[in-house]
Amino acid sequence: MRKEDVFVKLKDMLERGEIKGVLGFVKTNDPAKKKIYYTENPEEVNIFEITPFNTLNPVTFLLRLKRDNGKIACFLRDCEERALNVLVSEGKIAKDSVYVIHVPCRGALDTLKLKAAYGGDITSLDVQDDKVVVDGSSGRREFAFRDFLPAGCKNCEEYSSHADVIVDGDNTRIHEDYRDIKGFDTKTPEEKWEYFRKEFERCTRCYACRESCPMCYCEQCFVDSYDPLWVEPGLSISDIMGYHLIKMYHMAGRCTNCGACERACPENIPLSLLTTMISERLKRDFNYISGLKSDQKVFLGEFHYEDREEFIR
């Protein structure tokens, strides 16, 4: 359906009470930044934007809204719809509490990284084929679209949407079939450690990666605990890694590789490389892709009485 028609439909549904509100992205003063917005006002539905600059995952915010008494309509890309499926299968969100509007996506750009690369006030930006054209106080500059995609967006899994309505548009993505990861695998453990140490040294433990993640819904995260103290606070590399590696364990089989964490990271740390690695291993070794269906078994949440290992029972 054309975007304009979807807006008309949403307005109509709001007026008739078929949905309670709409969640999506809207403009901010900065053309490179879109913000999440929720409205219950039918007159406002046409302000929502569908762009490659929508950096966060709306499902994260869906969790923060009251989802009883009425459906919430939500604009979702493939990976974000898959994240919703995971949360439904985990019993975190009721399937019928969300009205899914599927939006086309060619990959979601890391706009903080783009802004840092441009290095000035941005007045306009536009995607033309494989280029991002930026205009502003540092003049007109062009960047390669691919260079500003998190690894997840370059290795997006095929998915057939179960959305309630589908917005028309170009939905072809770069499928590199985990090329980066396979290349990375040829490195020695020392080289891998060196690579990640260098990247993670910049981490300030601001936890934007956690807060932007729809899978990080724990009311109290393991790092927010004094007793037991799972990971010490502070910025030594072992404490930083302690946080990230444990977080990554919690992502296995749940993360749908939407890349929101990497796009949210103010230090441009390639978090999506790690999550993409997890996705690759899961697919390679277990033929498991997270969130394909909302009734899919949870990867690490399953056990059988016939399992050989005692501890699982």
Binding site: L56, F61, Y207, E211, S212, P266
Partner: peptide, 8 residues
């Protein structure tokens, strides 16, 4: 509403 509470 759109603030992540990240602390950055």
């Amino acid at each position: 509403f759109h603030c992540l509470n990240c602390g950055a």
